[in-house]
Write a protein that binds this DNA or RNA. Structure first.
Length: 100
DNA sequence: GACGAGGCTGCTA
DNA sequence: CTAGCAGCCTCGT
């Protein structure tokens, strides 16, 4: 399951630029790359290498909720540690989306 | 070459 | 609010 290196590189670059305490969506990342799609970004996050230093937890879906996957609970925990807040519906305020 | 399956999205009902 | 559906890109069978 390897994504083309060129796309992986762009996805990594974009994700690495998300500031702490902010989040972005798969679709936004896909839009900042050339050829990637939201689906592909999700796949890229899924198969991250063990020693990665990527803030994958700052990537959420278009409904501003944490995607339903194996590490969802940990993802929310990490985000809250950075000061990201969740409303009653478990969603992140639009003002925390990056870029603005 | 076909098919199914993914941390998705936007539209329509 | 939920459900269904067609696009989207890549990989393993």
């Amino acid at each position: 399951m390897a994504i083309r290196a060129s796309l992986l590189e762009q996805i990594y670059t974009v994700v690495a630029q998300v500031p702490a305490g902010r989040v972005t969506t798969y679709g936004r990342i896909a839009g900042m790359t050339e050829g990637a799609t939201a689906r592909l970004v999700g796949t890229a996050m899924r198969q991250l290498p063990a020693g990665h230093a990527l803030p994958w937890h700052r990537v959420i879906n278009a409904t501003r909720r944490v995607a339903d996957h194996g590490g969802a609970s940990e993802q929310q925990r990490l985000l809250r540690e950075e000061g990201v807040v969740f409303d009653g519906a478990g969603r992140v305020p639009a003002r925390l989306l990056w870029p603005d």
